[in-house]
Design a protein around this nucleic acid. Structure first.
Lengths: 151, 151
DNA sequence: ATTAAAGATGCATTATGGATGTAGGTTATG
DNA sequence: CATAACCTACATCCATAATGCATCTTTAAT
């Protein structure tokens, strides 16, 4: 019962982008785009894994990816528009937390458990829905310093 | 992100015991104790796995186990005393849902995420705390019939 | 055009941990 | 003392997350 590292990495990537882009004064006069390598250097992660997460974030329209020389990626929305429940639900996959089939449970027709757990799961996500990427950037200055020295 | 089958099996075992014992008119005049084999036959599970879950439930003092001939196990408390949050927390293990170490995340000193997820986790368990084994036995009659014919 | 730098993609491999299996030990009944 | 139950410690299997590798496609600079 734990979030996948895959999901975790996705959130770190968003935090990295949010901290960096929040520090840029003008939208147009930004420097180089963030590259996969930048993320890997900062967090000491596998290029291949981050590759896939970045791609996934792109498909979710949370970031915009650009191929080719001087390519990279950046947030596709304002940090306040990126809700944590959405990110986690999508990256994690939204399967039931309890498995009634596989193997099939004979009690299923009379079972109250799956409903209770499903409601609990929704409460978890409802809580996360109160937060956005902005809430992860409260200590933006400190994050920036960490990210700039970590690579 | 899913409960372990181990936990699931534990809840099924408790439901089985609750349904069966709830149907027994007098406490003293009960028949044979429930055995691991009974659970396995009913739910079509592995003896070895159920073995461990039963043992765990015993250590948690949720059931009383008796060794030797005519041994077996039974609920150690009234179903209304067995809270679902406790059962799931114990069987599942109470680790954080997000991993900040292993690999260590450089953002940790300035990260708001782990706290948010931890709060969400507690809300999940708070919700489960409203329910007991009794709530899983609403359809006790139907459960009894299922269990008696499933073996 | 050519080249280099970036992400995209598919497949292979490794690592982790849950799920099972095996073997024997311990306890209680009759 | 034989049997039937749970107890316990391993060992092994297996699903899947995590990671690696190779190649393709796209884009910008030269």
């Amino acid at each position: 019962m734990q979030l996948k590292k895959y999901t975790d990495y996705g959130l770190r990537i968003l935090m990295y982008l949010g901290a960096k882009e929040g520090a840029q004064t003008t939208d147009k006069e930004q420097g180089q785009l963030t590259r996969i390598r930048d993320i890997c250097d900062t967090f000491d992660l596998s290029v291949n894994h981050v590759n896939k997460v970045v791609h996934h974030l792109g498909r979710l329209n949370l970031i915009e990816t650009r191929r080719g020389k001087n390519g990279g990626f950046l947030l596709a929305k304002a940090p306040g528009e990126i809700r944590l429940d959405f990110v986690i639900r999508q990256l994690e996959g939204d399967e039931p937390w309890i498995e009634c089939h596989n193997p099939y449970c004979v009690a299923l027709p009379a079972c109250e458990l799956n409903g209770i757990v499903a409601r609990g799961k929704e409460l978890f996500y409802d809580y996360l829905a109160q937060f956005t990427l902005n809430d992860l950037l409260k200590k933006q200055g400190q994050l920036l310093q960490i990210f700039s020295t970590a690579s």
